[in-house]
């Protein structure tokens, strides 16, 4: 497993967020846990992944996410079992949407 943490600047998430979980840890898939964090101006992301050597790609995917969504003030934890960037992006947006508490 490879583990790293990234803190990204992000627009504030605004309204209070509820904890949300998207995805399942299985081959080619991942789980994304979204919780309230500390700093409203950043999004703190912790990645645990079974695929070694892809940190650069993770950083690009996560940076795009933080740019696209108001993820400031959120803490995100990821358990990954070798998901592709497409699946990672999808789970991030699903978990983010679920954390707003609205039915998507």
């Amino acid at each position: 497993m490879e583990r790293f943490e990234i803190t990204l600047p992000a627009r504030a998430a605004g309204a209070a967020r509820q904890t949300a979980l998207a995805g399942v840890v299985s081959s080619g898939n991942l789980e994304v846990l979204v919780e309230a964090g500390q700093d409203p101006a950043t999004c703190a992301i912790e990645v645990n992944t079974s695929a070694h050597g892809f940190r650069e790609i993770w950083e690009a995917v996560l940076a795009d996410f933080a740019e696209r969504y108001p993820a400031g003030g959120l803490r995100i934890a990821i358990n990954d079992a070798g998901a592709t960037p497409a699946v990672v992006s999808l789970r991030l947006s699903q978990a983010f949407e679920d954390s707003t508490g609205e039915d998507s």
Binding site: A51, F54, G82, T84
Partner: peptide, 8 residues
């Protein structure tokens, strides 16, 4: 195509 195949 998917941008990445299996095993990235």
């Amino acid at each position: 195509v998917e941008t990445f195949r299996e095993h990235m």
